[in-house]
Every structure is written in C-alpha cells, then in structure tokens.
Design a protein around this nucleic acid. Structure first.
Lengths: 225, 225
DNA sequence: TTCATGCTTCGACGCTAATCGAAGCATTGC
DNA sequence: GCAATGCTTCGATTAGCGTCGAAGCATGAA
C-alpha cells in the first residue's frame, strides 16, 4: 500500500515536545525571536537553534532577519490549520496540558488561532453570522451574501478592500475547544484586527488568550443578539 | 505559554514510519488484522504488535477480537480527519511518497477517505451538489435543503433512514490532492456505499484507490452535468 | 576598535525507542 | 489431545536524536 503523502516525517517533526511548544507559541500569529522561542520551549538557545533549523527545513516555519534578531513565524495558513486539527484530536482525548485551570478556561472563552478569533466567542460570532444569512456556499468555497457585505461594512470593514493574499476570503476552521467551526480566512483575520482596534478584545501578553473588554462584552452581546 | 492541548505526544505517535503506514492503511476504512498491518508497515509481527499497542493506548485505533484474529480500525471520524489534515499539509510540501507515478494518479482521481469518496471525483460531486443547492449552512453545521433531499432520494437513499451515529449528516472534509472540500459525514459514507452497490465504483484490493466503472463514468457524467 | 548581544556550529554524552530472535499464550482445526 | 496459526511478551541490541557546554561568527553599540 503506502499510498498518499508521507505523513511520518511531518508528524515526527511536530512530535518533539520542544518543537511542539515552539509551534504552539507561534500559533499566536506573532513573530517571535529565537531566544523567545527557546524560552517558550524550555530549552537552551543551542537546542532551540537546532529545532528551528529543522522546522524551517520542513517548511513549517519561516524566518525573517531583522538586525541581529531572527524572527520566526508559521510558514502559512496550511500549517496553522493542520496544527489546529491535531489540537482538536488531542483535546477530544483529554490530552490537555493543564488540568482545566483558570488559564485553560480563559483559552476556551476567547483566544487567537494564528490570526483569527477562536474559542467560545469565535464560534458564537460565526454562528450568529450564519443565522443572519451572512454566508453562502459556492463551489469555490464560502462566500459573502449581500447581507453579509452589509454586516461587515457595519463593523467598519470593506470586504473588497482587504489586503490581498492567497488565502480565501472566508474559510471555516474547526475549533478544538468547541468542536464546531469558527471563521478564518482573510475576513476572519480582518475581523480580529478590527476588534482589537475597537478595543473589544485585547491580547494577553505571552499567551494566545484574548481578554474581552467590558465594551466588547456589550458590543458582542448586541451582535450576537 | 504552553497553552492548549498537548500535541507533542500525539504527533510523536503518528510520527513513526511504521505507525504512519499502519494508520494510512487503516484510512481505507477497512478493518485489518495485525498480520496484515505488519505487512503494510514492513515490519515483523512482534514490532507491529508493539506499535498497535501504542496506537491503541493513544486512542487512535480500536481493536475487535474475532476468533484468533484481531481486527483493527481507526478509532473514529476525528482521527481520520486529523490524518487527512496532515496529509494535506504534507502534500503541499511535495512530500509525496511516490513521485507521481500511475498509482499516485489513480489515487488523485478517486479514492476512499476513511469511509467516503475523495479525490477528483469526490470533489467534483460535492461541487455539483452545491451548485444544485443541495446544502445550506446552519449554526449546527451543514444541512440538506428540500432539493437536497430529492437529489439523495433519486440516488435511492433515504436521508432520514441512514444508520444513526454520533457523526453529523453532512460534513466537509478537506481533500489533500485537490485542496478543496469533498463530502463526509453519514451522508458521505452512505453515498460511497451506494455507489459501490450500484457498481459505479469499486475498491482496488490492498489500496485506497477507487476504480470508476464504465457505467459509473456515464452516470457520474450525467449527475455532474 | 572594543565589547556586548543574539544566534549558530561543533563535539560529546546519555537516553529513549525501534527492531528482531526466541519463547510463551491463546484459539482453532484435526 | 496434538499440531498449527495468530498474536504477544521478554530480552538484548542498536541507532538515532535531543541535550547542553564551549567555542565561533555575525551585528550593533560605545
């Protein structure tokens, strides 16, 4: 048999604890330096350097030199999606790192998934948008209806004016904590960015947790009906 | 940081070549014996036994004793989905096992993805169904429209009479070769089964390849317009 | 230039885990 | 009961890889 793509080397690459920690840290969407990642992974700089090299060779992360720092990010959307997939499976098996502490609860409420919003807030928002007829499925994927355009414009975003990229405008992303989809794609990214600008949510430093402000609570409550 | 589920142990479990081969073989959806899997993985029976034990402890596969044979299957939908996700990422990186040989081509045309149809045929079918307005998105996921019910009934299936399970009726599954979605879920499973009964497609032994019969070509051509 | 910072390379150590031969249990068939 | 088949357990070997100390190399600051 041995059909299909070779997943062994890829999975082995993710399968080391230090590298998994690095990748998880990069799921915040931020670019982090080698030293920061070494600290996240709990290993020395030398060891981290070796891991980063392997991850880069495996095309899971990308590097960007800036001065004497080297910033690393996930190589792309595809990588983030596969990682979220693994997290989803791990979560169903109770393989949670922390035994549902307060931090875990905060993660489930709202968090960053690479560059869009995930967790309960993300899923509820996506559901509310669906119930308003924001989306339609076409053969090329998820698309905005005219009502959807209005909804997005009301939030102060122009769907046609988003920064172009290879990624689709709308895409579903399976949420590991909710076991339902939330919104990803260029629109998902733009929405999170917009919510931050509006001060509805704020990133907690050194974490993927999103803190929802009082104002955010109110505004989301209005949108979610 | 160290937020979220522990993906390292899970990925490490998948990351061994022998175990990856075993899991890939089980993606055919069939239940295979320990000896068959040992052969697929290219290791001796003892080694395979050790791997199977680990996979079972990791809740990736399930065993079923039958006489003096032990049959193994994937533990569920979730596992198949995560594996397909990894294959998707691996495929984008050109990590194909066989360098696009004839076998690879056949896999891309039509194959089994756990229990539903994937590859070009699967994606084209799903697209055609979408263009006919077969589906609508609700907050609980993908659902059939009245037109969708008619479409499925015309194929000789009763959507309400499908075998019950925890899995949703309709679900998207990202196709690693096409980079687009095909249909999974209980309906996806029922459709593949129906196509086999009708003789439109047939499984190639010891492989995930689906061979489309002449009659199948004609009928699919009719459906796909 | 000189020093400090950030990262990488080299080399050596240690440990985990994959592998298989041989033996041990079950289950089935005769 | 006895032999054959299918699978697992045990034990020993081996190879690979993660790890870190020490040194090397850039870049930027003083």
């Amino acid at each position: 048999m041995k059909d299909g793509p070779n997943i062994a080397t890829l999975a082995a690459l993710i399968g080391d604890p230090a590298r998994a920690n690095i990748l998880t840290a990069l799921m915040s969407g931020k670019a982090l330096t080698a030293s920061e990642l070494a600290h996240e992974a709990g290993v020395t700089a030398q060891t981290a350097s070796s891991h980063l090299r392997k991850l880069e060779d495996g095309a899971l992360i990308a590097r960007r030199q800036q001065g004497r720092h080297r910033y690393f990010t996930l190589a792309g959307d595809e990588v983030a999606r596969a990682l979220e997939g693994l997290m989803g499976l791990a979560a169903t098996q109770g393989q949670l790192r922390t035994r549902t502490g307060p931090k875990d609860q905060a993660l489930r409420t709202a968090r960053v998934c690479y560059n869009h919003m995930a967790g309960e807030m993300g899923v509820r928002l996506y559901r509310a948008m669906q119930d308003r007829g924001t989306f339609r499925t076409t053969h090329s994927g998820l698309d905005l209806t005219p009502e959807g355009y209005d909804f997005v414009r009301d939030l102060g975003l122009d769907p046609d004016g988003l920064p172009p990229s290879r990624a689709p405008l709308c895409r579903e992303c399976l949420d590991w904590s909710m076991r339902q989809s939330h919104l990803a794609g260029r629109l998902g990214r733009a929405l999170l960015s917009r919510f931050e600008d509006l001060g509805w949510v704020a990133r907690v430093p050194d974490s993927r947790i999103l803190r929802v402000s009082r104002r955010g609570e109110k505004e989301f409550g209005r949108i979610l009906g």
